[in-house]
Design a binder for these strands. Sequence first.
DNA 1: TCTCAAACTGTAATCGTTTACAGTTGATGG
DNA 2: CCATCAACTGTAAACGATTACAGTTTGAGA
Lengths: 330, 330
Amino acid sequence: MATIGAVAKQAGVSIASVSRVINGTAARADTEKRVRAAIDDLGYQPNSAARALKVRQSEQICLSFDDLSNPAYVLMTRGVGQTLSSSKYRLILSSAFSSVEEIVKHLETMGRGFADGLIISPIYSDPRIAELISQLKMPVVLVGTMPEGVNVDNVYVDSAAGLDMAIKHLVETGRKNIAFINGPVATNPGRRRKAAFEKSMKQLNLAFSNSSNLQAEAFTPEAGYRAISEFRDLKNFDAIICANDQLAAGAMKFCVEKRVAIPRDIALVGIDNIDLASLLRPTLTSVDLRAEERGQIAARLMLKRLANPDSPVKKITVQPQLIIRESSVA
Amino acid sequence: MATIGAVAKQAGVSIASVSRVINGTAARADTEKRVRAAIDDLGYQPNSAARALKVRQSEQICLSFDDLSNPAYVLMTRGVGQTLSSSKYRLILSSAFSSVEEIVKHLETMGRGFADGLIISPIYSDPRIAELISQLKMPVVLVGTMPEGVNVDNVYVDSAAGLDMAIKHLVETGRKNIAFINGPVATNPGRRRKAAFEKSMKQLNLAFSNSSNLQAEAFTPEAGYRAISEFRDLKNFDAIICANDQLAAGAMKFCVEKRVAIPRDIALVGIDNIDLASLLRPTLTSVDLRAEERGQIAARLMLKRLANPDSPVKKITVQPQLIIRESSVA
DNA sequence: TCTCAAACTGTAATCGTTTACAGTTGATGG
DNA sequence: CCATCAACTGTAAACGATTACAGTTTGAGA
């Protein structure tokens, strides 16, 4: 592989001059021309490790989240990728953390400097994670709920408002008994959506009990299917909100099999508005949490922060949007 | 940030000794203990740029493909990510190339050494791409059709066999007139699937013409919907094969709207067997191209190659599998 | 206790860049 | 033609690790 030295020799100038041409610092037209010719000639590409070592920047941004099986995270990844692709930064993906230990280990390796910034969307809350994030010497953008004591750029979607919109929509279209199929309550989204559901129900003076509140063991269609099949008194409900679209897809499958008519007998609402929602039959009413947009925003926040490390910490809230489709209107 | 020098001073040993402890070369128990203590003390993490510069390895593997909107690539990414996560390598994601130029530019940057290997699944064939891949000084694993003149590790799925299985299945279940909705024929999958379709049809002595062969402008549900709505004589067909599940989902949507009964009036078969397939109504018969498995295999090939650069080039073929669901059997 | 090899340790060069600093060149105006 | 100054260029020192090589310890065996 050609090095900067080889280019310098070929062009008959010093290494420093080559470096300056590459980095756009002043150079005489003549020098520049010769250097560029030599670069082309040798097919020279500057070595990123050497550059990274010297300037203390890797030009890489790390995106970490729980797992790529969840389409909502895929959307987020897409948003981040898009935004980053028009910058000089490369995207490193770290996903599939099966335990808090793994993510802790991963966060510790951040100190190696292979990334200039970290965009993280932690599904679990854990004091160790919060602690490590705060101590990180690099810019961090957190997508999701901020853990206690962490103070970094944040992009936040008001999922409680989304849930509220969904409930109101159901009430307005005449539903009286609303159930909720949640994901694991040990996760951030699970915990927050449960709280939001209960709060909205109370505010609207709607009855709910433990039996109207089911917890699936994962945010997957299979788990949604299993969860709904555990309802003892499905007949008592005329609407179900699911903590994400995948759960809703599973629930819908169950209803189709058991000939529970959607939306006639039961209205179904999901959360995330992934592509799937408009392909199901009936099409699924869903609260769009704007995952792709959040990814874009997170990446933009990161780029700004990298350009301007001392600017005040920002928190951007995105508003969910209720996408009404067939599954909730008769 | 603590450097190896700081650790050495703290432990009262030389830099070399610290390095040796870290890298597991011989050290006296006493030395090792002091070094480890110092490392813990200072929270030292070796700088990856410095290490990469010296040992000429980045411990990063780059995965490149056309775009992340296609769930099949998400599956592949998952497979690669899984396999890599138990290795020392990090995953760099490069996606969303909108043109051959962009991918060429990207391949050129590979010379910077920020990745030790490249796993690539090019959707377009272009001599420049083939040329650049062959000239790359690093291990490459290609997922998909090998371009002319390229000789690297390859994981290949026999999609022609898959298409053949689909057609035979349709014939066996009594279908006589099979149409094909393809994606853009400018892409590798588009071109190959078209050829495979025509070859199988001929072999089985089935009639087909230009009018039974539609080309959607992308591999998306929307494009599938538009494509099927352009069929003049949908009534003449009793089966449609789509070049991927997303196209099939769009086609299915159209059929539902126009009250064309699936599978009674028309059987529908997709390709890829993404999660979506089992959630549609009717559930979608699909040729599983094992994208996730191909990702795993590609990553494993890469790891082997990195461990053993001179071993002979391997080509691994994975067999597709027809997953029969409701959309094709009455 | 002495010898000797094996096991460990330290010194210093090196990886390929960037950049401060000092030196050189060239152009301009008098 | 000279002085002056801006603009450019080259020299050399980093950046933080690894590792060849030479030097030092250690412990076993005589």
